[in-house]
Design a protein around this nucleic acid. Structure first.
Length: 826
RNA sequence: GCCCGGGUGGCGGAAUAGGUAUACGCGCGACACUUAAAAUGUCGCGGCUGUAAGGCCAUGCGGGUUCGAGUCCCGCCCUGGGCACCA
């Protein structure tokens, strides 16, 4: 290609100047209006991929735009640097995880810099450094003190591939979120964070998240899974024990003809103590249930039950009902026991049918109050209560109120809320994570490492064998320690933290990344937070985004933070695809950003990735597309170079309104400034902002030769060209800076004020009025913008075409839309 | 099964508050410049019909509301995603 603009030279030059002049370093100055633009920090896997390029390009446009608008912008970046790939590399290739990670970071940092993203590198954080993870430990200890971090023996999700434990969120659907292999169940002692204590607030906080995509809020809402209902206790016959259940359908309680316990329920074992055969059977059932949990695509298992032979009393009806153990009752939801209402719950119906248990309808559809045993299946709809003692005749809604009130006064129940959300298991049996700062002393028990001893650093010299168990277990100099309380022999916790812990508060750390006495400076954090715009992939909708919201609330309750919601505005960026599928190594459809930068430059790559589709939608890679953007930049370069003399001329800034020659271009210029300002600042539609800049270029090119003929025309032309450079700056910052300099400007464009538009000039003076007859487009006419309704109507009716179409028929109605349209109904 | 998105030219997409559907780009065709190609520029490109002016049809399919529907409502189809024995 001939006459290419020297993008490589230009891009390197400006990246250097920005860095030298510290153009993007944010000032912690509370007098300034701040703007916090954040993109999800990357895992340093080795190379930047197109998803990163897209994410960071979107953020960069917003950041640069707000900076030019005069705001004090903080635009930080860092590294989510702990995690398993580093350790896997160590096992496979014998490289230390730290070496591997730091090398990757160095490489990726160069890549990000070559994209020209406007990061404040002085605020870079790296979670694998003790100066960062020390504060993970600090936060953990604060949580431990408050009972928000606790240890519990439980069945946990175990990924055999990653050889570590996964949180429920990370094992959704029975598959590991990282490697996709099937998850097994394993019983272990494990550290948990009490996220369930914040379930209600995490849900209610959604009301404040008005600028989140609806579907993300919905996913979180479903994940938290609040259910309104009641807890009811059923006394066990010939025993002082009760069985507590949770139900959302207390209105059906007179139809509760048996009870079910989860096979894992502690009472299940107890009730079978006198029948060893059944106990063996139950143990088998427990095993089967746990096996089923790790299957990826499990079919709904056949319902199985064991009759305990014991009876409980329905506290409402006084009826004695059998207690069964059933494989479909979950231990970790509600109380692990349910009242079974086979007439009105499909699962219980199937179970009752199989074992010949009583099915008694107690709800009749409002329009058909018949008492009949259901044949086909349960009727789960609300209706009118029948066969329900003193509550018969009430509607389901009324009954739920009255019956829970009744239970409360009689002392065997209460209204309640139950959540699907489980506590967050954070223990990982791996090396490359934050050591959990806990010491076990035979005498003193479980003790937090004293704050002054933080950080508990990872020992550098350990063996990475890939065998089961954490490498830390085999590092005696790490494990063996003394009790900080009694000074006796003790050992350290060897589990490390889930890396989602790190990313749950990194956006706080950016505000004072070098703070030595606290995770962050409270005052500075209060100035910068909340994040004004958070951009990242929707795959983190229910992992990272819930954890980060949870941490923010905990930090607030610890007195560290002054906000409850970290991200009032979240932009969920779409996937990058090629040939109809997500770019991935296994598919072999990966396009390497470096190659594209080599061939077309960072500006062309950025422009294309932003132009091809709006940020929240999927983006399909096409080689032809980037080529088109590259050609556009060349054309811009050429038109500016060819007209540089205009800028040297020092043309007058003022242009008379009635300049006939340049008026069209002058208007277009102001309209484009308006459009680009709104598209970036209000709508986040970067693709349409770019297309309007292209339109401005097209008109400029068309009119340039005639405009050069006179003085005023040259002024209009130079204004249009200058606007072109400035409006492009957030998208293609390097070429813009270079052209800005070449047109005689001295200061860096990145800090140049964003242009204002003249609303009068941006207004269209002539409009096209569309004329419809019976709703069909038939004709148009030109008119002054201020045309009144009466005149519009008159002129429309006077049109020949309209007259012939009406053909003398009476006009029934004329609809006029100001400056737009006339519709004549005959 | 339940809950959300999405479906517009050959392609990526635009239409911001129910008011000119297909902006902008890619691609394609013709032409100009050129020895030639690239680049650049000019013109054209939803379908059918017509010499033309024009007409008819078209935003996944079928209905509806409205003077007017890509946009709102109802029912389908396809597609992507989330959840899935949650009592």
């Amino acid at each position: 290609m001939k006459d290419m603009y020297p993008f490589q030279e230009v891009e390197e030059k400006w990246q250097k100047i920005w860095a030298e002049r510290k153009v993007f370093e944010a000032a912690d100055d509370p007098r300034l209006t701040k703007y916090y633009c954040l993109e999800m920090y990357p895992y340093p896997s080795g190379r930047i991929h197109m998803g990163h390029v897209r994410n960071y390009s979107i953020g960069d446009v917003i950041s640069r735009f707000q900076l030019m608008k005069g705001l004090n912008v903080i635009h930080p970046i860092g590294w989510d640097a702990l995690g398993m790939p580093a350790e896997n590399a160590a096992i496979k290739h014998g490289i230390h995880p730290q070496t591997w990670t730091l090398d990757n970071i160095a490489h990726m940092k160069r890549q990000l810099q070559s994209l020209g993203i406007s990061y404040d590198w002085s605020r870079e954080v790296n979670t694998c450094l003790p100066e960062y993870y020390k504060w993970n430990q600090w936060i953990f200890l604060k949580m431990f003190e408050r009972g928000l971090a606790f240890r519990k023996k439980s069945w946990v999700n175990w990924c055999p591939q990653c050889r570590t434990v996964l949180a429920n969120e990370q094992a959704a659907g029975g598959a590991c979120w990282r490697c996709d292999s099937g998850v097994e169940q394993k019983e272990m002692i494990h550290w948990f964070l009490k996220i369930t204590a914040y379930a209600k607030e995490l849900l209610d906080g959604h009301k404040l998240l008005k600028k989140w995509p609806e579907h993300v809020l919905l996913m979180q809402k479903n994940w938290i899974g609040e259910s309104e209902g009641a807890h009811i206790s059923f006394p066990l016959m010939r025993s002082s024990r009760t069985i507590e259940v949770f139900t959302t359908r207390i209105d059906t309680i007179f139809g509760a003809t048996f009870m079910l316990l989860s096979p894992e329920h502690p009472l299940s074992r107890e009730l079978l103590a006198d029948s060893p055969d059944k106990e063996k059977w139950r143990e088998e059932m427990v095993r089967a249930v746990r096996d089923a949990r790790m299957k990826k695509e499990q079919e709904e298992a056949e319902k199985e039950g064991i009759d305990t032979g014991k009876k409980a009393v329905n506290p409402f009806s006084g009826e004695e009902i059998p207690v069964w153990i059933a494989n479909y009752v979950l231990m970790d939801y509600g109380t692990g026991a349910v009242m079974a209402v086979p007439a009105h719950d499909q699962r219980d119906f199937e179970f009752a049918r199989k074992y010949g248990l009583t099915i008694r309808p107690v709800i009749a559809p409002a329009d058909n109050p018949v008492l009949e045993e259901p044949q086909e299946g349960a009727t789960e709809e609300y209706g009118v209560l029948i066969n329900s003692g003193q509550f018969s005749g009430l509607s389901s809604q009324e009954a739920m109120e009255k019956m829970s009130g009744f239970a409360l006064t009689r002392g065997f129940g209460r209204k309640s809320l139950t959540y699907r959300l489980r506590d967050w298991g954070i223990s990982r049996q791996r090396y490359w994570g934050t050591p959990i700062p806990i010491i076990y002393c035979e005498r003193c028990g479980t003790i937090g490492v004293p704050y002054e001893d933080l950080p508990v650093e990872l020992p550098h010299d350990v063996k990475f064998t890939g065998e089961e168990g954490s490498p830390l277990d085999k590092a005696p100099e790490f494990v063996n320690t003394t009790c900080p309380k009694c000074g006796g022999k003790a050992h350290r916790e060897t589990d490390t933290m889930d890396t989602f812990f790190d990313s749950s508060w990194y956006f706080f750390r950016y505000t004072s990344p070098h703070q030595k006495d606290a995770p962050f400076d409270r005052a500075v954090a209060s100035y910068w937070l909340p994040v004004d715009l958070y951009i990242g992939g929707v795959e983190h909708a229910i992992l990272h985004l819930i954890y980060a919201r949870f941490f923010t609330k905990v930090l607030r309750d610890l007195g560290c933070a002054s906000i409850g919601e970290p991200f009032p505005h979240y932009l969920a960026q779409g996937m990058v695809t090629k040939d109809g599928a997500a770019m991935s190594k296994s598919r072999g459809n990966v396009v390497d950003p470096d190659e594209m930068i080599q061939e077309y430059g960072a500006d062309a790559l950025r422009l294309f990735i932003l132009f091809a589709s709006p940020p929240e939608k999927e983006f399909a890679w096409a080689e032809d597309g980037i080529e088109g953007c590259f050609r556009f930049l060349n054309r811009v370069w050429t038109i500016i170079e060819e007209n540089r003399d205009l800028f040297a001329e020092g043309a007058p800034r003022t242009i008379s309104r009635d300049t006939s020659a340049g008026l069209a271009l002058l208007k277009k210029t102001h309209q484009t400034i308006r459009k680009v300002t709104e598209d970036i600042g209000k709508r986040f539609h970067l693709n349409t902002a770019i297309s309007s800049i292209m339109e401005l270029y097209n008109l400029t090119r068309k009119e340039k030769d005639s405009l050069r003929q006179d003085r005023e025309g040259r002024t209009v032309l130079s204004l249009a060209l200058e606007s072109l450079i400035v409006l492009l700056a957030p998208f293609t910052p390097h070429i813009s800076e270079e052209l800005w300099e070449r047109t005689g400007h001295r200061d860096v464009l990145a800090r140049f004020p964003w242009p204002a538009f003249d609303p009068e000039l941006a207004k269209e003076e002539r409009v096209t009025i569309v004329v419809q007859v019976n709703g069909k487009l038939r004709d148009k006419f030109e008119a002054d913008a201020g045309i009144g309704e009466g005149e519009m109507r008159e002129r429309a009716l006077a049109l020949d075409r309209v007259r012939s179409l009406i053909g003398g028929r009476p006009v029934r109605k004329v609809i006029c839309i100001e400056s737009k349209l006339v519709n004549i109904v005959v």
